[in-house]
Amino acid sequence: MAQVALRLKVNGVEHEALVEPRLTLADFLRTDLGLTGTHLGCEHGVCGACTVLLDGEAVRSCLLFAVQTEGHEVITIEGMAQGEELHPIQEAFWEQHGLQCGFCTPGFILSAYNLLQENAQPSEEEIQAAISGNLCRCTGYQSIVASVKAAAEKLQLQRES
């Protein structure tokens, strides 16, 4: 199959690649770039495990072709921490044990990032609604909601200081 040239920025790094038009963004990130933190839980856009940020917005990387991201910027779970320093959302998930098996977790963290960008102090109901597009089979969600709430507080403190 004919290949198409692709240029995009992933986690702050410029990449150039030749890809088949049918290659999904998720498979491109996982296979071509080795960013295996983006997980595939359904490949039909429901479970949210493959959530990444495209120009700052949460998207499902299983529903996008890699070629659609030409000239855009993608952030994956690997781009959240600054070196050794965890992002406050990641810290909150660790402290609140907002995960068990961890398969869905990268998607939740990126959806939480998207929510907290738009709504710095969400209510519990707003958190539930915002992450209801991500599925988790282990936790029962309460620890994830608590993690997002704790993350909002951490980010608030960060802004204040």
Binding site: I77, W94, T105, P106
Partner: peptide
């Protein structure tokens, strides 16, 4: 959890 929240599982 540390490896799982950083995409290193």
């Amino acid at each position: 959890d540390l490896r799982l929240i950083t995409g290193r599982g």
